[in-house]
Design a protein around this nucleic acid. Structure first.
Length: 602
DNA sequence: CCCCCCCC
């Protein structure tokens, strides 16, 4: 069987031209650097007319070579590639082709020989050639105050560096190589910010760039800030070269790159006008909304959801700075059954319109935690897109419009509330569980409307130390005196206190709880001294009292915390406060809950 | 060279 190679394709590519999916033969391979994850291989390839060892294998394809799948004499179709001009190697510039994806058309064992009679490709053969397709010429823009007006590249810029296929993948950038051009799309651009600190003052703006291979943040300071701020526009594609690379501080970016770039006086930026469509748009690493609970506070997350509801703009004053702030809380839902609040700030908050229930994709939102509830907050660096043309977004649109809007949701941002009075939002036991309340070090607080399903009357009342601050259970010395181990004293008197164990249920679950004196009194409806007296004098009435409060409903505020008894972890849930149901308040909450679940104004 | 990003 004969195999057709793309004769002449190699020459076109080496001249910076475009050649779609050339078929070539692998004639040899060689490890050129590194080991393990940093291993890189060079290939000797032939198109039947020329051969050249200029091809490098993208590291994700290393396995094909190591496994023997990509053996010598294999015929391959090169599905995706980029070419780059490597730094001065002593023999001038060296053009290489980085193979990003390939299909093995025929394994080497089947082909078994060199096809055709390829000649080694040289610069001279390029010069002699008249058949090559010239590269589309971009319009390089010099780093001048009026960049759009510059028609030609600066004299010291090798314009071939800006040829459309002669670019480096962003993922290949490192501080160890400084001669490169990237062709990147601007995903996000900050406003100009100034700083003034011990190290001096200045201004800056930053931008997030991406290409097919990856993404990177770039920052322009002072002069470069002025020079490039107007030129750089969100969603446009630029050729960019001559920036400084340094290690990125992961704390401040969710972009997947170990490095970030700084514009310098030599930085060149030219808008790509010919084929910007060849560069993809934003890269997200979406997390399902109900998985947000597993993330630690302050993480930067990418989330996509449908705007179920949005609050009005609220004004507030920042405690720390005294600044007047404007915010809007948007509730996002997705098909994981989770709902989360995303807080927008300032102008973004004011401009936002949630009435059409847009799909919102957010990249690099910060996870905030407050009273056991988790929510997302936009930072200046957060990227927000409404109804993006993106598969995840289309899927969610379809889900929401076809029943998703009516799905039961667990709102991970519902307020659990403290125990210091006031009306806090009610959640359910299943929501408390979904949010893993109690798993932290400090214990979590939440409120709910629940019913007492069981009460334990045994040992519910005890004789406690009469000292105001000490409620320790006394030891009856059976000589008319009671000993407090805590105070290390004996007393002739005591006070009764209640320690009630009970079960509380709501429609979603059931929880064993403990209520101390005041809250137990509230449930039993009698002061501890009466209950204690009843215990001493009328056991039947005492037992009936505990029976009598079974199936009574209350509004509970709990503190819950995971504790370990005998190597077994279980939730210890304590009643911090208990109130009879205020039906007016309860109905208000029900209405707002119906509104938030259905999105319908009630 | 920034890296603050807010409130309950």
């Amino acid at each position: 069987m004969s195999h057709q190679l793309s004769e002449g394709s190699l020459q076109v590519i080496m001249n910076g031209g475009v050649y779609d999916k050339p078929v070539m033969q692998v004639l040899g391979s060689k490890k050129i650097q590194g080991s393990g994850a940093n291993e890189r291989f060079r290939l000797l390839v032939s198109d039947g007319k020329h051969s050249h060892s200029f091809a490098m294998l993208a590291t994700q394809l290393n396995d094909k070579l190591i496994s023997g799948e990509l053996s010598d004499y294999s015929v391959v179709q090169i599905d995706r590639f980029v070419t780059s001009v490597l730094k001065n190697t002593g023999k001038g510039e060296k053009r290489v082709m980085i193979i990003l994806d390939l299909t093995i058309v025929a394994p080497g064992s089947e082909v078994g020989k060199k096809l055709g009679n390829p000649q080694t490709w040289t610069e001279e053969s390029a010069a002699a050639s008249t058949t090559s397709t010239p590269a589309p010429t971009p319009r390089p823009v010099a780093a001048t105050p009026k960049p759009q007006m510059a028609a030609t590249a600066p004299a010291n810029l090798d314009s071939s560096l800006l040829s459309s296929q002669m670019t480096h993948p962003i993922a290949s950038l490192s501080p160890y190589q400084n001669k490169w051009v990237i062709k990147a799309r601007v995903m996000n651009k900050s406003s100009i910010r100034t700083w003034n600190n011990a190290r001096g003052e200045g201004k800056l703006f930053s931008m997030d760039l991406c290409d097919e291979s990856g993404e990177i943040r770039a920052t322009a300071f002072k002069n470069e800030c002025d020079k490039f701020y107007d030129l750089i526009q969100i969603d446009k594609v630029y050729f960019i070269s001559r920036c400084q690379l340094k290690t990125a501080n992961k704390q401040y970016t969710s972009l997947k790159n170990d490095y970030e770039m700084t514009f310098t006086a030599n930085t060149v930026v030219a808008e790509c006008i010919d084929d910007p469509g060849s560069v993809p748009s934003v890269k997200y690493d979406f997390i399902a909304i109900n998985d947000i609970t597993s993330k630690t506070p302050d993480s930067l997350l990418d989330v996509v959801g449908v705007c179920k509801s949005a609050s009005d703009v609220q004004e507030l004053t920042a405690k720390s700075t005294g600044k007047l702030l404007k915010k809007r809380e948007v509730t996002l839902v997705d098909n994981s059954g989770g709902a989360v609040v995303l807080t927008l700030w300032g102008e973004e908050a004011e401009k936002f319109d949630g009435s059409t229930h847009p799909v919102i994709a957010v990249k690099g939102a910060r996870l905030a935690e407050f009273n056991g509830s988790k929510s997302l907050s936009c930072l200046a660096s957060t990227m927000l897109r409404l109804n993006p043309d993106e598969p995840h977004a289309h899927k969610l649109r379809g889900w929401y419009d076809n029943g998703g809007a009516d799905m039961d949701l667990v709102n991970i941002s519902a307020r659990a509330g403290g125990y210091s009075g006031g009306s806090s939002e009610w959640i359910t036991f299943s929501e408390a569980e979904a949010r893993q309340l109690g798993s932290g070090d400090k214990g979590d607080y939440f409120s709910l409307l629940g019913v007492l399903t069981y009460t334990f009357s045994d040992n519910a009342v005890y004789k406690a130390c009469p000292q105001e601050q000490c409620n320790k259970k006394l030891v009856d010395l059976e000589n008319g005196l009671f000993r407090c181990e805590k105070c290390n004293r004996e007393y002739p008197n005591y006070k009764y206190r209640i320690l009630l164990s009970a079960n509380v249920s709501d429609p979603t679950g059931d929880q064993r709880i403990t209520a101390f004196n005041e809250s137990a009194e509230g449930m039993l409806g009698k002061p501890a001294i009466e209950i204690g007296t009843m215990f001493e004098n009328d056991k039947t009435a005492y037992t009936q009292m505990f029976e009598g409060i079974k199936f009574k409903s209350f509004v509970f505020k709990f503190r819950t915390k995971m504790e370990t008894y005998n190597d077994e972890a279980r939730l210890k849930t304590t009643v911090m406060n208990v109130q009879p149901i205020d039906y007016k308040d309860a109905n208000t909450k029900l209405i707002s809950s119906i509104k938030s679940i259905t999105g319908i104004e009630v």
